[in-house]
Design a protein around this nucleic acid. Structure first.
Length: 540
DNA sequence: ATTGCTAAAGGG
């Protein structure tokens, strides 16, 4: 095809892919399959009729705080909950301890976990600790022989994010430097990134409003994330679209977290369908999206995934190098959501990875707060005749006796009524929401993916790039990118054709890649010259 | 008004 990955045939950069693999990999770069679609659909600002609450993410996830006595840290944190935009009525009050936040008047107030984090995780050593004879494991950050996977993404550290897996599509070495050299293992935020965050926030605010929820345990925290997911799925089903939906999946047995920018029932490019069927895997069962008359794709409503990228100029040009990480990103989202829709996700594996006990009851405070947002949490109204049903089953293990004090007004709903008290009990509700919104399993998840380029100035739509899901390309990419995470090989720098990336890289100064590359080329040239000399000698 | 801190992604 037009451009290969520019893998040098002499393997100068350490690649040793088969021609077929090489071809597949190159598709990641070159397959800008669709011409940019018109921007006619750019004002589909969804009126947030808003029966639903989508609760935004939580400051939890500090499962790594495990080795620190949690009481010493006074593990009292909070997360953000998002509610409908126009919320005429308020059900219930904020529970005691909760700030007087109301939808529309959003209070963003994160707990200060920095000390807890610093002492346990990211920093090589606690600052107050004497430098004398520091633990050898803590000091040798430069020549640490452990794999990046073990060093940076194993318990009690946070799991993989989709970003972890896509960053290598830009430059593996840059990401490795980010992980190992940056203070918190993350990239320095640029002004462009901050603006991009704001554009994303503005978009999300069109469908959600923030409410704050207090978190008293890590189980609370993950419970909130599940509630968020449920509410996001319902918003998708009820309004046709939602934003910032969290998805989970496993790659090589590793948990990976992702957040899908946009989900909608609207096909990003209806004319693309025929081409799409050719891109799906030929073997295996014929996809329902195939063009055979018997399996009309139009009969199955599908939700389509979008990722928003903001640009600094209205006439932003898109190079394949820029698109490649976004493709991997959307491929991963597509796969994860498909697997969740097909009920193939191992939720208890997720709990295990986070060190969560699926049977630990949510905190009283958390239940009260969620209960004020979701009536369904309680089964008060669920009995057919409206009678109060004693929680006989619930009290069998004694867990129902959480409130022993007489309940006051805000605790009118006793835990006896609570239907979803634990992560385990919450799971069926999530599975139901997945079935309701994606009733055809993986076939409910569209295989057409879109990158939406928006102008950072005002968020207006610049361009949309549409491309099909490509499982083989994703598998191939994951296979190669996991190699360096496992330390089966060194992380690679950019190809020489993409050296422009180094211009904006904060590690360019002491990056060894270029000199190493020069050295390799030098030796390669020497080899070539040597063999040529031999040849000459033989001939002459 | 904007920044840092949890999340992930944020841009190039």
């Amino acid at each position: 095809m037009a451009t290969s990955l520019s893998l040098d045939s002499e393997d100068e950069f350490g690649y040793d892919l088969s021609p077929e693999d090489e071809n597949l990999l190159s598709r990641l770069i070159t397959d800008v399959a669709a011409a940019p679609t018109s921007s006619s659909s750019q004002n589909h600002v969804v009126a947030p009729t808003a029966s639903d609450l989508g609760i935004d993410t939580v400051a939890e996830e500090e499962s790594r705080l495990n080795d620190i006595p949690t009481d010493a840290l006074s593990y009292q944190s909070s997360g953000l909950a998002k509610g409908p935009l126009r919320l005429g009525r308020h059900r219930g009050q904020n529970p005691p301890g909760a700030p007087p936040s109301s939808p529309g008047d959003v209070v963003i107030c994160y707990p200060d976990l920095s000390k807890a984090l610093a002492s346990n995780d990211r920093l090589p050593s606690p600052p107050q600790q004497a430098p004398e004879r520091a633990a050898p494991e803590e000091t040798q950050t430069a020549n640490d022989t452990r794999s990046p996977l073990v060093r940076f993404r194993s318990f009690p550290r946070k799991p993989f994010g989709v970003t972890d897996l896509t960053s290598g599509a830009w430059c593996e070495l840059q990401y490795f430097y980010t992980l190992s050299r940056s203070p918190n293992g993350r990239k320095t935020r640029t002004a462009a990134m901050k603006q991009g965050t704001k554009v994303h926030q503005d978009l999300e605010d069109q469908v959600h409003t923030t409410v704050r929820v207090n978190i008293a345990s890590k189980e609370d925290g993950f419970g909130l994330r599940i509630w968020n997911l449920i509410q996001g799925l319902r918003a998708l089903r009820d309004t046709g679209m939602t934003r910032e939906l969290e998805v989970w999946g496993f790659v090589d047995g590793n948990l990976v977290i992702g957040v899908i920018d946009g989900l909608s029932f609207e096909n990003p490019d209806p004319n693309f369908v025929e081409q799409l069927s050719q891109a799906t895997e030929p073997q295996g069962q014929p996809s329902i999206t195939a063009y055979f008359p018997s399996n009309k794709p139009a009969n199955v409503p599908q939700i389509y995934l979008t990722d928003v990228k903001t640009r600094g100029s209205m006439n932003a040009l898109n190079s394949p190098a820029l698109l490649r990480p976004a493709k991997v990103q959307l491929f991963l989202y597509q796969r994860f959501l498909s697997e969740m829709a097909a009920d193939k996700l191992d939720y208890f594996g997720i709990f295990r990875r986070y060190g969560l006990d699926p049977d630990v009851p949510f905190s009283d405070s958390f239940i009260a707060q969620i209960g004020s947002l979701h009536d369904e949490l309680f089964d008060v109204d669920m009995s057919p005749d409206g009678d109060y049903i004693p929680p006989s089953s619930a009290s069998t293990n004694g867990e129902a006796r959480v409130f022993e004090e007489p309940s006051n007004q805000t605790r009118a709903s006793t835990p006896d009524h609570v239907k979803y008290r634990t992560l385990r009990e919450l799971l069926p509700l999530l599975k139901t929401a997945l079935r309701d919104t994606l009733p055809h399993g993986a076939d409910s998840v569209g295989r057409l993916l879109a990158v939406e380029y928006r102008y950072r100035g005002d968020g207006s739509l610049i361009d949309v790039i549409v491309f099909p899901m490509d499982d083989r390309a994703l598998d191939l990419y994951l296979g190669t990118t996991m190699e360096w995470w496992r330390a089966d090989r060194e992380p690679r720098g950019v190809q020489i054709e993409e050296a422009f990336k180094c211009r904006t890289c904060e590690f360019a100064g002491d990056c060894t890649w270029r000199s190493a590359m020069d050295e390799e080329r030098l030796q390669s040239t020497r080899r070539r010259l040597a063999s040529r000399r031999k040849k000459h000698a033989a001939n002459g």
